[in-house]
Design a protein around this nucleic acid. Structure first.
Lengths: 191, 191, 191, 191
DNA sequence: AATGAATGAGTTTTCATTCAT
DNA sequence: AATGAATGAAAACTCATTCAT
């Protein structure tokens, strides 16, 4: 097994261990045992526990960040929004273990790590707020505090993804996208 | 200071420490130092670290649970829903420290604790699912997977509460309620 | 056993262990085993291995530093020099274990610690250089590079002390003082 | 590069690493990196870390041992003594890195290694003691405990050499020899 | 002869919990 | 009831050495 393959293997195994046990309950011993290597080998490839965890989360954070593209209000807005949801859902369901980690274990690892996560969510939120504000100008977005709306939208998607990966349930991706989009578009209650 | 008062005081102090540091970073030492008691005294009142944490979370979980009341579909549905949101928001903002703990530190403490949390959210979700299904029968709720809608609604409220308490921001409660209700009723995007 | 006594006891035991094994070979386990306490107890009193070692050495460094007093060239110089030697010898032989540590284990512990030691010796050397230079003015000190003379004098005393404590030999203190003083005064070779 | 050359190169590189970092802080990794060979290669040429260190020190110990020749009391004693000092100084300053190792890192490596060093110094001391005792018979050496005198003389030279190599200072060799000799002959203080 | 990936024994340090006073 | 000194299990990490290629 080549060096990059070994690294990849340990990374994959660690991801599963973190997903199964959570950051604090996951011991280096669990990882190396699962990977079938000696303890020292782990440290040959990764500086420490925190570093490998960060690498796992960073990768997905980056992919989610790239999945979201600015909405062009001159073109079909609804379709673009749905496409954004679709891309995020796809990225998150592609690697469920990491998504579980991102959405439930990544918080509380470390003050510095917490800040990083919050920054990421803030960025996502900001992006949405801008689009929402523009949308309000054009009348395609309901009036109201854009920051609040951004949080509501973000939270609803996070929860759905969290529930799915946490339960290990097989859900139809497109239905999730449609449902989430529908909620974003029209809520649930008819009054 | 009487026994119950001392217990209460340690509990309050522990809550703040947990909110500030998170479960794992909070040391028994931090708690007893802040409470101004000896380390041994802590164990006179609480079995262990996990137990006191659980008690803090349980209390709020119970209050949130009680804040939500079954919607009577024969009466004004919208107002009842809004009232439910209002009660949950009120409970959660009443004790921001505990809310912060519940929404960001309670996950990843322990497999058993995780299960408990999930149970609670499942219960909340179930409650909503029932109401939503009934509402769909009556045509006051948009068609669609009720479980998904429950998650979406629950997630959006959780995120808003989390952002508020995590930032320590002063937000107008009624605006939060209105905004969240509006999202539940009509989403954000006009298409 | 009170807290200060316990601290003192661990310190004394650690000193012996360091003297017997040297810094690197001395394990925390050796110290706690010799002290008859649990491993955790050690860390109750001392931050870490390096810290307790430093405390042991610092104490003696300080005592040696205080043992040396400026020579007043208007008064009996020879007697003052001899008295300085006597005081240093007394301090160093009072606690042979620590002297052994200072003269043979303290070097190579740590770059920072090495610097500290060098600083101390530099200070001692500087003190002597000043006195020697003054003495040269008055003609009571042989001409020559005062720094070199300071090193020669310091080195001869260090070696004698080192040999004595390292062998655990019982030597007559006054004979050591006289001999060292004689060497400083007249060397060894008659030409 | 032939086998003996490679061995020589690793030895030279290791010497520099040991001189720079000290025995314990010097890692095999530092040596092989500096030598530009693989880790395994190191072990083709040397049994282990301890062995290569020993070889470095042994070489200089041997050279110093050979630099000192028995003083013939029938011939010019002063000149022979000075010549001995000169030869030792020359050997020690020829390879400053190793001298630094010998005088500051070699102690505390290992109990066995410590014994070896002490043996060497004992041998040197014995040699001097004999000469000094003979000199006392002939009246060319001041009376007094010859072992003590030997330690004083040895210590003064060790310290000077240590200070020089440790500081990396450029010192005129002959001045060092003269100064050390002068101290051995007449001390420093005129009384 | 050379390589460098892999090993795992060994050490320090932390911290929840206990218990004698 | 309260104290706080003592405990020791548990965990992360290091690095000299080995060995298959």
């Amino acid at each position: 097994m080549g060096k990059p393959e070994r690294r990849q293997q340990i990374l994959a195994v660690a991801r599963d261990v973190f997903a199964r046990r959570g950051y604090h309950a996951a011991k280096i011993d669990d990882i190396v045992a699962a990977a079938g290597v000696a303890r020292g080998t782990f440290y040959l490839y990764f500086q420490d526990k925190r570093t490998i965890f960060e690498e796992i989360v960073d990768r997905t954070i980056a992919r989610v960040g790239m999945a979201i593209v600015r909405v062009d209000l001159k073109s079909n807005v609804a379709e673009q929004v749905k496409e954004n949801i679709r891309r995020v859902v796809r990225v998150l369901l592609e690697d469920r273990a990491t998504t579980k980690i991102l959405l439930s274990d990544a918080l509380g690892v470390d003050p510095a790590f917490d800040r990083k996560l919050h920054s990421f969510y803030d960025e996502m939120s900001s992006l949405m707020e801008h689009s929402l504000a523009e949308g309000q100008q054009l009348g395609v977005v309901r009036p109201g505090d854009v920051r609040l709306i951004a949080w509501l939208a973000m939270g609803s998607l996070k929860e759905v993804m969290f529930q799915i990966v946490q339960r290990g349930a097989a859900y139809d991706e497109e239905k999730l996208v449609e449902g989430t989009f529908a909620y974003f578009t029209g809520g649930a209650l008819r009054v």
